[in-house]
Design a protein around this nucleic acid. Structure first.
Lengths: 212, 212
DNA sequence: GTCTATATGAAGATAGAC
DNA sequence: GTCTATCTTCATATAGAC
């Protein structure tokens, strides 16, 4: 938690500012967002905003870090699923797609990536709390499946295999959603993307004949 | 070509403005970029800039469309390669990665994606002239390989298979470069990504035993 | 700490001389 | 058409009353 809270600031207003700032920054990006919009949406005065945060940059950092924490929590909630490898991968893929294709997931990606040159440490933070965390979870599943003799990923290694699986899951879905902001993907479309990703991954690495 | 040129504007200055605007917009994004920066880098006055373009938005559209044309040209230059499917896919993957991981490729992606909500038609244009064009090219190669009995992509279809291949190629590479702006990927790293993508795709869809 | 009112600077865009 | 100088608007950030 790099963001420092004010000394005796009203906790409600502090949250209101953070919530408002999240909406504004995620919708408009860093540069196009204004402290006026945040101030008005939070229902506080300009002075109150600056009492809680040194400036626009600090507020932005606090917002993105909080969004990354939510992202990490959502990722952590996924891994609890158990079952056979196809079912596990399907569940992971579905949950992961729901996260990154959600409006907040897409907005966070947009903002972090576009501001990466100006806030490199923030972009790295996002990478670690999002894709990297997700990849580590998949690595765990693949390691277990390897020990059970279900798959063989020796040609690329566990980490690369996890990365490939997640790439198959993101596939064209993320790209299309990023470049077509008005269109929302249907549930059927998401199910299709998940099925194709899992099938393809198993066709490449499964040792079970029924997946070839 | 949606951008309209000035009536009798000096062609050199017109190009200078476009070049300067490309640099500034790709480096800073739309909102953080200022017409002052563009004007100074182009070596012209503010009035000259506004004589050629109605305003900042029009200039931005012209810049992005020109960058998309360069992107499309680069993509068109790839497909000429011929040979066996593994060699063809390797060549495509390598050329594609060179494009999207180049500084201008990454910057264009950053700007287009972040401004997609404000410029949706521009984002769609980018999608069609970049990823979609690339995918169509791969579809052609996969169709030929299918007819030659080299691969079987009947479970997902040609279009989806092309998308999966390109996703494998982008893989973690694009994500890492987007979130680590200071680090440049090494040639060895790129070769590794290419090899893994091609191998994995062939393991999933090739009918030749030597690729399993 | 919180508000109203304001200082200060910079952005986009234009007017008028040549 | 091109430049210098300027207008208007709006941004971030602060000062002073309560």
């Amino acid at each position: 938690m790099l963001a420092a809270t004010s000394q005796t600031m009203d906790s409600e207003k502090f949250s209101a500012i953070l919530d408002a700032a999240s909406n504004v920054f995620l919708q408009h990006g860093f540069s196009a967002a204004t402290t006026d919009m945040i101030q008005k949406e939070a229902g506080v005065s300009k002075a109150t905003l600056y009492a809680g945060f040194p400036g626009k940059e600090a507020l932005f950092v606090a917002v993105i870090e909080r969004q990354c924490s939510k992202l990490a929590d959502a990722v952590d909630d996924i891994v609890l699923v158990k079952g056979g490898l196809p079912q596990t991968l399907t569940a992971i893929a579905h949950a992961y797609l729901e996260i990154i294709l959600s409006p907040s997931g897409l907005s966070l990606f947009r903002v972090v990536v576009s501001e990466a040159p100006r806030f490199p440490e923030l972009a790295r933070h996002f990478y670690l709390r999002g894709p990297k965390l997700m990849s580590d979870a998949v690595v765990g599943q693949l390691r277990a499946a390897t020990q059970d003799g279900e798959i063989d990923v020796s040609t690329v290694g566990l980490e690369a295999a996890a990365g490939l699986f997640l790439s198959l899951v993101r596939s064209e879905g993320q790209l299309e959603c990023l470049t077509h902001p008005q269109a929302r993907p249907s549930g059927v479309q998401i199910d299709m993307w998940v099925r194709i990703a899992v099938e393809t991954f198993l066709k490449a690495f499964s040792l079970r004949p029924e997946h070839r």
